[in-house]
Structures are given as C-alpha cells and as structure tokens.
Write a protein that binds this DNA or RNA. Structure first.
Lengths: 163, 163
DNA sequence: AAGCTGACTTCTTAATTCATAAGTCAGCTA
DNA sequence: TAGCTGACTTATGAATTAAGAAGTCAGCTT
C-alpha cells in the first residue's frame, strides 16, 4: 500500500476518472438535477422549481447534462397539448445512481436532522432499504481501511520534478 | 413506486440529505481534495499541487472540510523539523469513501480513455478490485431499475401550492 | 387567426470562486 | 540569532455562476 502512495508525485492525474467525472457533474446544481432525475422529474419547469434554481441555471445545467449524455431530450405529448420535450435518464445517467445513493447515504448518516431522512430507496422486490456498499470482485465486503490504491493500466508516470 | 413520485411536489426538500451533503462538498475542488485525502495526501502544499489549485483555494477548501469534520488538522514532526500540521481523514471523512469510489467507477466506465483507469482500488486481503454496488438490507443486489423511492421518517409534506 | 402555456432565451446585476504574486509567521538548524 | 522552509494569509483582478425579470417561440385549442 505504501509503495504507490509514497510515490504519489510520480503519477500524472491527467487521466483521472474522478476529475473527468467532476468536469461534467462537479457542481452543486448538476448533482441536484441528477437527484431530481432519479426522483422522477422530467420537465424543465419542475427541475428548476424542485432544485430551487432559476430558469437560466436550469437550462444551462440540463443542456450540459444532455450534451454529456446523462440525460436525453425526448418528445412527449399530453392529450390536447402540443409536443413538448422531457429530460430523462439515459443508461449513462442511470449508472450514476450509485453516486447519488452514496451521497444520500453519507448525508443520512452525518448530516441528517433528528427526524431522519426524508426519503429512502427500497428494493422493488423485497422492500428493504438500499445502500451503497463496497465489494471486491471476489465477493468480499470491503470495510473502511481494508483497501488500497494500486496502479491501473492507464497510469502515466512522470519523472520527479526538479523543484 | 408511482404513488410517491407523482406527488413529488408535496414533499419539501428542506431536509434533503443530498442537498446538505452538497453544501459541504458540492464543488469540484472539495471533491478533488477528498480524492487526494483517500490517495494518502496529508500536507497542505501537496494538496494544492496535486489537485492543481492555488494556495488560497486550497486553504479555503481545507478549512471548510476541517470545519465540517471530514478532515482533521493533526500535528506531526519530522526529525530535525519543527512541528507542522497535516490534514487527515476522520471517521466522517473516511465514510465518504463510497462516494469517491462511485464517482471513480462511473468515470472509469463512461469517461475513461482507451488506456484504462490510472488507478484501481483493491481489497487488502485478496487483491481483487473494489467496486461500489447497491444492495438492500435483505442482502440482495439491486440492479438499476429495481428500486423505488419511498417516504422516510423525516419527510415533510407541504400543501399543494395554489399556482 | 388569436390565445394560451410550457419551454426556453436574453439581459443585467450580484455573488462566488479562482489564480497569481507577494507577503507573514513559526521554530529548528547552523 | 539569522536563515530557511513549509504553511499559510492578503491583495488584486479575472472568470464563472447565479438570480430575477422580461421577452420569444411553437403549436394545439377555440
């Protein structure tokens, strides 16, 4: 574990998945819009109202998220109404679910008030609450502290800087 | 599933765990600092350099994260050096691990380049890669789409607005 | 053809966030 | 006790992000 970490300055973070992800959703409102999308919100006005942001901000975020492929703009038509567009999760967006669940779970544990969380996510089949857990590919649960960071195939090593 | 969601406007989000969490870490640099903390970074200058931000920004973020209780400022002393302070994860901060793992995992899947991810997290005991998965309290894995949002104990319902 | 409504866009202004550069400060070493 | 160095703080200015109000636009209904 120590080996890699002590050499931390030798890696380049140009290829960091976290940084890339955050370039897409690295601000409060994008994440809140994703929350709403998971809660089932689809319409422009509802996003703005429920997230609590102005329309210009909602339009910008929705556009970014659509361009990034997490949401898609799909036409829908209510009876007697003209065709309108809704924003719904794509597979790419749905796969973001673990992040939202992990965020909510952390907040429930460390930043909730006495009344408890306002919403819970349940398993469709059995009704039990859903949590984000860490598990290794061998099927073991991985408690905090029982993991280490290792070099991946895309790690770019850079020479020690001369400073 | 539909029942609650269609009534979405009837909930108040004042008690939203996600919104509260994002008030603490809802910006790109805070999340990147948390990433570094998990990678083992502890010193001020290293945070600034590795996250790629200026010192004022690093000082502000580190102070926020410390005030929020995710990091703590602990004294350390290298031989022949004076006492200095390092920032290290608290239990509250360590528990944030699932969010960072989920973020990295999403980025590895949807935003990585051909070379693959630069780093992987492995299980200390068996060396297998660690992933964030969703699981219900009955022990079932919960695939995308097999969950629904339900009212929690802290849900505040508000009257339908007159608009 | 006019009205209506949801879905935006535009404009202006305020607030926040950031980088860069230049200090400041503490305390161990020489 | 002067220097050195890591850990910050201060100052300034640029860039980004936001709200609020108002305007535009499309197309179904009347």
């Amino acid at each position: 574990m120590k080996d890699l970490l002590e050499d931390r300055d030798a890696w380049s973070m140009d290829n960091c998945s976290i940084a890339r992800t955050l370039e897409i959703v690295g601000n409060r409102t994008s994440l809140l819009i994703m929350r709403e999308a998971f809660f089932g919100t689809r319409r422009f006005d509802d996003f703005a109202k429920r997230v609590g942001i102005g329309e210009p901000a909602a339009a910008t975020r929705l556009k970014e998220l659509t361009a990034a492929g997490l949401l898609e703009r799909v036409p829908y038509q209510e009876p007697g109404q003209r065709t309108r567009y809704a924003y719904q999760l794509t597979d790419k967006g749905r796969d973001f679910r673990a992040v939202i669940v992990a965020l909510r779970q952390w907040g429930d544990t460390w930043a909730a008030d006495e009344q408890g969380p306002p919403v819970v996510v349940r398993h469709e089949n059995c009704g039990a609450e859903v949590h984000a857990v860490l598990r290794c590919d061998e099927g073991h649960d991985v408690p905090v502290g029982d993991s280490f960071v290792d070099a991946g195939p895309g790690l770019v090593r850079v020479g020690p800087d001369s400073s």
